[in-house]
C-alpha cells in the first residue's frame, strides 16, 4: 500500500512540478449543455472546418446531439448522414499553404497535456508584437492564423465575446473527444450507489459470520 501511495504522491508532485515549468494555462469551465455544445458546433463549422477535420464525428452524431437537422443538412450538402466531418480544404493544399497538415480535432481535447484548458488557452493565446507579426503564447510554433481574432481585439466586450466563443468551441471539442462521457458519469453514480449498498451489506454479513467464531 505504502509503495503505491508513494508512487501516486510522486506522480502528483511531478505533475505539479511540470506544470509550473511550462506556460500557465487559463482554466475554462467546459459546458456540457446542448446549447453551449451546439454553439460550439456552429462556430467550428464556420471557422475551423475549412482546414480541420473531425474524422471520428459523423453528421448523424450532430443530429443525435440535438443540433437542428436543417442546419446539419445544409452543412453536409449531398453527403450522407453517416459521413464524417472532413476538412473542406484538401490536405495537400493545406500543406502547401501552411507547411504542415492541420491536425484532426476529434481527440484534440484529450491529446494535449492540460486538455480543454490547453485548447482554450491556445485559442486565446494570440498576441501581436510591435513589429506587427502575430504569435501564440501557448504554442509558439503554430502555423494556424489567429482565427478568433484575439490578437486584434482591443475592447473588453470584444474580448469577452471571443472568450465565450472559445469556450463554446472547447466545450464541443470536449464532447467530441468522448461523446459518452455524460452517460458514463451518470451510470457511474448508479454503480457507486449500488456498490456502496452491496459492500455495506457484505460488511454486515461478514460481521455476522465472524461473530460466531469464538
Amino acid at each position: 500500500m505504502n509503495k503505491f501511495m508513494m508512487v501516486l504522491a510522486s506522480c502528483c508532485l511531478a505533475a505539479s512540478a511540470l506544470a509550473s515549468s511550462e506556460v500557465k494555462l487559463d482554466t475554462v469551465k467546459v459546458g456540457v449543455d446542448a446549447s453551449t455544445v451546439g454553439r460550439g458546433v456552429e462556430a467550428m463549422m464556420s471557422d475551423c472546418h475549412s482546414c480541420h477535420s473531425m474524422k471520428y464525428i459523423k453528421y448523424r452524431d450532430l443530429v443525435s446531439l440535438g443540433v437542428d437537422s436543417k442546419k446539419v443538412d445544409e452543412w453536409r450538402g449531398d453527403q450522407p448522414l453517416d459521413a464524417a466531418l472532413m476538412a473542406q480544404m484538401p490536405e495537400a493544399d493545406a500543406m502547401a499553404a501552411y507547411g504542415s497538415a492541420p491536425p484532426d480535432l476529434s481527440l484534440m481535447a484529450k491529446a494535449r497535456e492540460g486538455g480543454a484548458n490547453y485548447v482554450y488557452s491556445y485559442l486565446l493565446g494570440y498576441y501581436t508584437t510591435p513589429d506587427g507579426t502575430t504569435h501564440n503564447h501557448i504554442f509558439p510554433a503554430t502555423k494556424m492564423p489567429d482565427i478568433l481574432g484575439m490578437s486584434n481585439a482591443k475592447e473588453a466586450a470584444e474580448r469577452t465575446a471571443i472568450q465565450s466563443k472559445a469556450r463554446d468551441i472547447v466545450s464541443y471539442l470536449v464532447w467530441a473527444s468522448d461523446p459518452h462521457a455524460q452517460e458514463r458519469q451518470s451510470l457511474g453514480y448508479y454503480v457507486m450507489g449500488y456498490l456502496f449498498v452491496l459492500t455495506l451489506m457484505l460488511y454486515f454479513v461478514k460481521n455476522q459470520i465472524w461473530a460466531k467464531l469464538k
Binding site: R184, Q185, L187, G188, V191, M192, L195, F196, L198, T199, L202, Y203, V205, K206, I209, W210, L213
Partner: peptide
C-alpha cells in the same frame, strides 16, 4: 464461509475505488 465473505467484502471496497477511476 469466513474468508469467502471477507474476500467478497474486500472486493466491494476494491470495486468502489476501481469504479471511481473507471467512471469518473
Amino acid at each position: 464461509p469466513y474468508f469467502t465473505i471477507k474476500d467478497l467484502y474486500g472486493l466491494g471496497l476494491f470495486l468502489m475505488l476501481y469504479s471511481v477511476f473507471v467512471f469518473f
